[in-house]
Amino acid sequence: MSSAEDGEADRTDWERLRNLTDEENEANIAGDFDSWPLEDQARGCFFHVRPLEGRRWTWDMVDPRGRVVARAPADYADRASAEAATLALKTRLKAA
């Protein structure tokens, strides 16, 4: 039984969700710890790529408890550049 059927009003802003850009949607997914790749989970740390103000991007390395253990030393022009920076770090971590 849905909450609407229980008599609660549906508080979902469906119009806002329908109008999300791909970039906004991917940022939301990246911010959801439960959606991180199994490879990151097995490593014990997650890389959270997220937008900054002014259309710049950054990343945080987060432990399984959600604590930030490292931050990007710089911000990036776009999501792809921030993701690429995490890939280089992931490769180095695998070799360690």
Rank of each mutant, 00 (worst) to 15 (best):
E53A: 12
E53Y: 06
E53D: 13
E53W: 00
E53Q: 12
G54E: 06
G54S: 07
G54M: 06
G54A: 06
R55C: 14
R55D: 15
R55L: 15
R55F: 13
R55H: 14
R55K: 15
R55M: 15
R55G: 15
R56D: 11
R56L: 14
R56Y: 10
R56S: 13
R56P: 08
R56C: 12
R56N: 11
W57M: 10
W57C: 10
T58H: 10
T58R: 12
T58D: 14
T58A: 15
T58L: 12
T58S: 15
T58I: 11
T58G: 15
W59F: 15
D60W: 11
D60M: 08
D60C: 09
D60N: 12
D60E: 13
D60K: 09
M61R: 15
M61C: 13
M61E: 15
V62S: 02
V62T: 04
D63A: 05
D63C: 10
D63E: 07
D63I: 05
P64N: 00
P64A: 00
P64V: 01
P64M: 00
R65H: 03
R65V: 05
G66K: 01
G66Y: 02
G66I: 04
G66T: 06
G66W: 01
G66S: 03
G66M: 02
R67P: 06
R67E: 12
R67T: 14
R67D: 14
R67I: 11
R67G: 09
R67S: 13
R67H: 10
R67L: 13
R67N: 14
V68F: 03
V68W: 04
V68E: 08
V68I: 14
V68L: 07
V68C: 12
V68T: 14
V69L: 09
V69I: 15
V69P: 08
V69H: 06
V69N: 07
A70C: 06
A70E: 10
A70P: 02
A70V: 04
A70S: 12
A70K: 07
A70D: 10
A70Y: 02
A70H: 07
R71V: 13
R71T: 11
R71C: 11
R71E: 12
R71H: 07
R71K: 12
R71S: 13
A72E: 00
A72Q: 00
A72R: 00
P73Y: 00
P73W: 01
P73D: 07
P73M: 01
P73H: 01
A74M: 06
D75L: 00
D75A: 09
D75Y: 01
D75P: 03
Y76S: 04
Y76W: 07
Y76L: 06
Y76G: 05
A77H: 05
A77D: 13
A77C: 06
D78Y: 04
R79L: 02
R79V: 03
R79K: 08
R79T: 02
R79A: 05
R79C: 03
A80I: 08
A80C: 03
A80K: 09
S81F: 05
S81G: 13
S81I: 03
A82S: 01
A82P: 01
A82W: 00
A82K: 00
A82F: 01
